[in-house]
Structures are given as C-alpha cells and as structure tokens.
Amino acid sequence: MTAAVFFGCAFIAFGPAFSLFIFTIARDPLRVIILIAGAFFWLLSLLLSSLVWFIAMKASNAEDTKVQTGLLIFGVFFSVLLQEVFRFAYYRLLRKANEGLAAISDEETSPISVQQMAYVAGLGFGIISGAFSMINILSDTLGPGTVGIFGDSQYYFITSALMTLAITLLQIFWGVVFFDGCEKSRWWVIAVVVCLHLLVSGLSLLNPLYEGSLPPVYAITVLMAVWAFFASGGSLHNLSLLFTRKILFVLQLICFVKM
C-alpha cells in the first residue's frame, strides 16, 4: 500500500518539473546543456554551504540546543545567500556564453533569448534542489511505517512533497525575475528575489506548523508566477488575445457544428 504514497509524493514533487522538461527542454540540446549547467551551479552552492555547515557542526557543542538553533537559522540563511550568489555567477556566465553563441550563429543573434535562458536556468536550479530535498524522504515513503510515533503529523510526506513542488516552481520564477533584474540593472528586483527566498526558507522553519508555512509559500509562488509572467514578456494583452482566440475558435466550432 505504501507504494501509493511513494508514487503520490513523487508525482507531486516532480510531476510539474517533469512535464516542463519534456515539453520545453528535452527537444533542444542547448536548453538541456543550460539546464544541466544550472543544476551544477546549484550543486556547487550546496557543496560550499555544506562545507561551512560541516565545520560549524564540528566546531560547536552538539549538546547546546540554543547554539544549534542559532546555527540552523544561520545555516539556512547562509545557504540561501550562497544560492543567490551562484545564480548571479551563472547569469554572468550565461551572458558571456550568449555573446559567444551570437558570434558563431548564422543569424548574428543568439539562438536563445535571455528570458528563455533565465527560465531554463531556473528550472535547473529547481529540479536539483527539489531532488535533494525530496529523495531522502521518498526513500522512506516506501514504508511500511509512516511518520507519527513521536507525535508528529501524519501529513509529513505529502506536505514535504508539496513544499518541494513549491520550491521547484519558485526557483524557476526567481530565476526568470532575477535574470530580468540583472538584464535591466534593476537591483531592487534582485533584492526582492533574495528577500523572498530568505522568507520562504524562513517560513519552513515554522514546520511542523503546516498552516503557518504552506499557504504563505504558495501565495508567494502565485505572486512570483505572475511577476515572472510579466518579466518574461507576457502581458494582459497577450492573455486576452489568447483567450479571445480561444473563444473565437470555440465559437467557430459551435457554428460549424450547428451548420
């Protein structure tokens, strides 16, 4: 029976990332490369922050819960900042690569736009961070037991999966907005992204108060989605255009059927 939990959690956590990958990434080799490189940059940030964490853990007294609490909060914020630093580094690298791509391209322009790069890089960050947060938990969903013998919530698995989903999506949106901010040299945008990232990570400290962490995180995700939509060239006009086309199409269809 617990295989159900395993597949359920896997689908929740990785379903959107998977469908994004197959429909938008897989067919374009350049995007695959950018995605993998993005994942690699995130891994580098993880490596560095885990190094720092390791040293901090060794240096501190494991018995002292206060120090450990402080260390944990410090570790979270340090890790977030490192991730954003590496996002910026990756942006710089991609800009450089973009010039090179433009130079060798037939059309004198790069075959990939900055917005597209931002999206692909964000997805790379999202997939790898989602994988790292979820795989350990996934291996335990196979059972036979579930969390709760120490009085913890039995919704641990599904909320972890939902949290992973939110983090994956947020990494995409942050990527898009962040790159847009860099492109337009709007530093406040970058600052907002970093702050939101810190906020989301901080909210997860509220767990297991899921009511306290999950809804705000999802609210931020929706907000970021809207922002990212506009940052990557979307507009209300386009949306209405799309919907009117759709409506027109449907109307035509109805007329056709009636005739």
Binding site: S49, T69, L72, G75, I137, D140, I149, M163, N207, P208
Partner: peptide
C-alpha cells in the same frame, strides 16, 4: 517541533545528512 523543522530543513537544504534522519522519526 523544533527538531522536526530541523529535520525538514536539513533535508531541504543539506544533502549532507544520512537518510536515517527521517527513518528515526518513523
């Protein structure tokens, strides 16, 4: 509950943790 969030965070941000930490909660 603190230990709990610790656990979640560890798994969210740090892969450097043996997979037994969730197991210990189960």
């Amino acid at each position: 509950s603190f230990r709990w969030s610790y656990l979640l965070l560890i798994s969210l941000f740090y892969s450097y943790v043996s997979c037994s930490s969730v197991e210990q909660k189960i």
